[in-house]
Simulated scan of single mutants.
Amino acid sequence: MTFPKLNTMRLQLVEITKKHTENYYAILSMDEVTKYYGMDPLKNKSDALGMIRSFHQNYESNRGIRWGIIISDTQEFAGTVGLNNLSLWSKKAEIGYELHPNYWNQGYITEAVEGVLNYAFDELQLFRMGAVTYPQNTASITVLEKLGFQREGLLRGYLYQNDQSYDANIFSLLKNEWKENLAEKTIESH
């Protein structure tokens, strides 16, 4: 099974391997990155390597796909984006992502998520994409809404972090809505 490499205008979405451990650890050990992540910051590089191994296991068992986000111009590892809770049988998954603060507010996550959504809806033939965010994570909510996700409701006590449970928003995007959004963007650009 060959890992699907995706390319967008400015990014390469690649398989995360052991060689990315240092960069992945640097990102997920930052408090500002994990503040709304649903897990505590990583404490050591072996934890990062363990997560990278779990990405590989999830891919091998068709339960998830996680891509490393590489900036095409510089070949720098900027973060990850992926499909969590993937169910090919029931045609659904959840999108997840994180990005190094050096790359915030430059449209990279929106671009990476667009690439993954195209792959998920076209290649994997998924019908539903979910997303779970902290209600306070306005940056992530802005990305989701920009891409056409709709807020479905509040999941009470859904995320556990820093020895405490937190509420979460659940968003979704259906394949037909995504296709309509793409058609509208195509019309607007002509």
Results as ranks from 00 to 15, higher is better:
139 A>C: 13
51 M>V: 07
181 N>T: 12
8 T>H: 05
128 R>I: 11
159 L>Q: 10
168 A>P: 02
151 R>K: 15
76 E>W: 04
139 A>W: 05
8 T>Q: 07
61 S>P: 05
59 Y>Q: 01
152 E>M: 09
67 W>N: 02
153 G>N: 05
159 L>N: 10
43 K>G: 14
12 Q>G: 12
89 W>S: 14
93 A>G: 06
160 Y>V: 10
67 W>V: 04
170 I>M: 01
153 G>R: 03
63 R>G: 10
21 T>D: 07
111 E>F: 00
131 A>Y: 10
133 T>P: 10
158 Y>H: 15
65 I>W: 03
93 A>D: 06
27 I>Q: 10
5 K>V: 06
161 Q>S: 10
10 R>S: 10
65 I>D: 04
88 L>V: 02
66 R>G: 02
177 E>M: 12
131 A>D: 01
135 P>S: 01
144 L>S: 12
113 V>M: 01
39 M>G: 11
2 T>D: 15
3 F>N: 04
62 N>R: 11
11 L>H: 14
76 E>F: 07
58 N>F: 03
110 T>C: 13
161 Q>M: 11
83 L>A: 01
134 Y>N: 09
96 G>M: 00
138 T>A: 15
155 L>V: 03
167 D>C: 07
45 K>C: 06
84 N>Q: 01
24 Y>R: 03
81 V>C: 12
48 A>E: 09
158 Y>E: 05
21 T>E: 04
80 T>P: 07
137 N>H: 14
119 Y>E: 02
24 Y>C: 06
160 Y>I: 07
159 L>A: 12
34 T>P: 13
10 R>M: 08
84 N>F: 01
155 L>Q: 01
49 L>N: 15
32 E>S: 09
65 I>H: 02
79 G>F: 06
104 W>K: 00
96 G>F: 02
146 K>S: 09
42 L>W: 08
